[in-house]
Design a protein around this nucleic acid. Sequence first.
DNA 1: ATTGACTCCTGATGGC
DNA 2: TGCCATCAGGAGTCAA
Length: 270
Amino acid sequence: MPELPEVEVSRLGISPHLIGQRIQAIMVRQVQLRWPIPGEVQYAVGREIRDVRRRAKYLLIDTDVGSLILHLGMSGSLRVVDIDTPVQKHDHVDIQLHNGKCLRFNDPRRFGACLWQAAGETPIELLERLGPEPLTDAFDGRRLYELSRNKTLAVKNFIMDNQIVVGVGNIYASESLFMAGVDPRKAAGKVTKGAYEKLAAAIKQVLAHAIQQGGTTLKDFTQADGNPGYFAQELQVYGRAGEPCRVCENPVQSLTIGQRNSFYCKKCQR
DNA sequence: ATTGACTCCTGATGGC
DNA sequence: TGCCATCAGGAGTCAA
């Protein structure tokens, strides 16, 4: 389930193969992803790829006339392969290049997306309302503190809100709350300034570390060159229900917060 | 306005 | 071994 680090690692992996290449064709085998793939993606055909960027968990493949927007959902992966490589199940989109390679998008659960952003037009709504990138200075504890006043929703849900900060998925929400010693159930408005500063620092640290590790993978992440991703880095609480806390050895708790599985240590997190 | 529930989809998992 | 039910999960959308 790609979280921001996996998307960033994918970007790093694919961009050297794409930048400077001309798109020869875009083959869509399955139109029905998160949203139907719009016909406008064909505007990219014949254009040279100028850059491959990331915004939140969206990848943007830039051409002069616009950008292809890819989202990996929770089971999507990208690989750069030869155009004649036999397709596998769930290989939904090929972005074929003039050099005989193609970027192949595979997504079993089809929660991913492939969209089009025309150059010079107002950003599509998906990208318009996003909060700051977690690894920039625009995101800090003060922002969390100020935006959370009077909010009653659980702090875990708060930090997973893309308008507050992007790229904090279910796994890293649990991990960063553990690292900061904050109870995930606590009302966002009741969390202190100091705790938010710890939390913001923890989010930055845990994401940066995961990117450095090549992305955490729990199940089916495949690196852009086709090699299997690294196995999960040493997760502190996620998926460890009943196992001893790595700090205090009390059993890790699990519960559902906002329809999401959450893990925490009731002794270390208050 | 805020918050929580529901939704898309398929593979993995567990029970019998 | 096989079959079925259940669940996970990003994030947009809907409902209260």
